[in-house]
């Protein structure tokens, strides 16, 4: 130790190495947890499949009953849950870091409200079903993000204006969604309601493939931009001093976060609080560091765990997964607000 203290550079290096080790260990542990939860979701539940049977089904053996349930229902649900959770998690973490506010997740600043309003418009007015709804949701989310960017221009580094504009937009869009709900018949309204809660019930392989393609494109971009994000965390001036092109990185990251949130919303509906919670949970696990892989893994873990509860809580009925994340998210949110405020990070 005394040797290290004599040489500051070595000390810094050792601290860095320790932190990197912690991040690596946490990410590895989270990966194991996500895989375990994925298997639990697929194997357990009202219809239990044994591990050897599962492997045989994957190998192509046809087992009457079990094959259908696993391949057409449980597996696509789990895959969509995993990918959407990861997308929500990364999106939330990017937004919160970018806007330097633990509360400024895509659900709060109106991006998911925009996606929802556009999707409900499609279902109720245009009679769109299936993949078309997803495209509309994506368009709605991007439109809100663009509006936010234009409206908040000139707000400076505080980002407060963007957050407030987002909250205003969210309130307006929720009114539009409510209005559309009253214009539809009750069957459509129930259908929309399930979607609005965020649900994995309609997951198909087609949807899983679309989501895989979209996240496969967006997540590497996120990994690429993560370096700029760490620079921005120091403050815009410091980041500019370090050679980060602040304005460009900022816009790129915002668009990326919105695209991820909108893609996930398009696949599952706005699953409440996943984007909001993943970033802070990952940060706590890592002792304050920002790590997008960890946030994405936490998001996937949250969705898969909530799905397990939602599928088995009420016998005979499958609750939308968003109801569970919402019910668990609200108390956590209040706790976060309270502790965040105490140390002066609440806004």
């Amino acid at each position: 130790m005394s040797v290290l203290l004599d040489r500051p550079a070595a000390l810094v290096r050792s601290v860095h190495r320790a932190r990197r080790r912690r991040v690596r260990r946490t990410v590895a542990a989270l990966t194991v947890a996500v895989l375990a939860m994925f298997l639990v979701d697929v194997l357990l539940g009202t219809y239990t499949v044994t591990m050897p049977d599962f492997l045989r089904i994957l190998g192509g053996t046809e087992i009457p009953g079990a094959s259908f349930i696993v391949m057409e229902n449980k597996l696509p649900r789990a895959v969509v849950g995993l990918l959407a959770g990861a997308a929500f998690g990364v999106s939330g973490a990017v937004c919160q870091t970018l806007l330097r506010n633990p509360l400024a997740s895509p659900d709060v600043i109106g991006v998911t409200s925009g996606a929802s309003a556009a999707a409900v418009l499609g279902i109720v007015v245009l009679g769109v079903r299936g993949q078309g709804v997803s495209w509309l949701a994506l368009a709605g989310g991007l439109l809100v993000a663009l509006t936010l960017h234009v409206m908040a221009r000139g707000g400076g580094a505080s980002c407060h204006r963007l957050v407030l504009v987002g909250i205003g937009c969210a309130a307006l869009l929720q009114a539009v969604t409510s209005y559309l709900l009253t214009r539809s018949d009750i069957r459509t309204a129930s259908e929309v309601m399930v979607w609005l809660n965020g649900s994995l019930n309609d997951s198909t392989w087609e949807r899983a493939a679309h989501l895989l393609l979209a996240t496969g494109l967006l997540l590497p971009v996120a990994a690429h931009l993560a370096h700029g994000l760490r620079g921005l965390e120091l403050g815009d001036d410091a980041a500019a001093g370090l050679g980060v092109p602040v304005a460009r990185v900022r816009l790129g990251l915002l668009l990326l976060a919105v695209a991820l949130a909108a893609v996930a919303t398009a696949a599952t509906g706005p699953v409440a609080f996943v984007a909001f919670l993943s970033g802070p949970i990952a940060r706590r696990l890592l002792g304050g560091a920002v790590s997008l892989p960890a946030a994405g893994l936490v998001g996937a873990l949250v969705v898969l765990a909530a799905e397990l509860v939602a599928a088995n809580l009420v016998p005979g009925a499958v609750l939308p997964v968003g109801v569970v994340t919402g019910a668990l998210g609200a108390p956590f949110l209040l706790w976060l607000l309270v502790t965040g405020s105490r140390v002066g990070r609440g806004g």
Binding site: L103, V108, V163, I167, A272, A327
Partner: peptide, 14 residues
Amino acid sequence: ALAGAALSAGLASL
């Protein structure tokens, strides 16, 4: 505004 929006989101999902 944030506390209100966040609480609204939580209550709405319930």
